[in-house]
Amino acid sequence: MRRMRFQKTGKAVWMSHLDTMRLMQRAFRRAGVLLHHSQGYTPHAYVSLPIPLSVGMESLCEILEYELDAELTITPEQINKVLPEGILVTDVYESDVKTKHLCLMDAELLLFYDQGIPEGCVEMIEALLSREELLIEKRTKRGPEEADIRPLLKSYRLERSGEQLRIFCTVCAQNPSLNPMLLIQAIERYAASCKPDHCRCRRLEIYDENGKVFR
């Protein structure tokens, strides 16, 4: 399995999952490397981003899977030259680890408070994250439903950083996954006074079930 690890930061965070796939398909062509194409009515290039990243989220650890005809190769330098600002390929490699082993993810939430961090905020957020149950409202096909996200939150750590509050967390990456931004929804529900005015979210690292960095 051919994989590419890349970062998505800056202006590129506003690109959707599908747009990112299209962007990478084009980048291969720009780099002069033709992706392996499917046969059939409308041939398409095989690329896949196993863990979709929400629009607006940064990531330092995105994975792209792709297929090339055996004799072809590509290097980070080759593709970085033709990528737009905010997308940076850091590694290109082959792996036989299936993506189903991608289980955990480290992420960082940066909470902005325009009037300064509210009194007792750190304690309140810590208290709510240590609850046994964290219910949030999820939109489903059957309409809004309650879901408990606490089992998907494996560990967390809070840190003051100047005027902002930082939450480091380890969450489930697949089956099911936890979008770290949902923690903000939980804060809104359980500790409304701690709701930030703005929040930035960034994926830091991905791991397999044994806590080894997933490659």
Partner: peptide, 24 residues
């Protein structure tokens, strides 16, 4: 990026059309 913009972009459709930064 402009701080105000960063705050409104999560709430609009297709924010990529408002930031530039494309290849070329």
């Amino acid at each position: 990026m402009n701080n105000k913009l960063e705050r409104i972009l999560p709430n609009v459709q297709k924010p990529a059309r408002y930031v530039g930064g494309e290849y070329g």
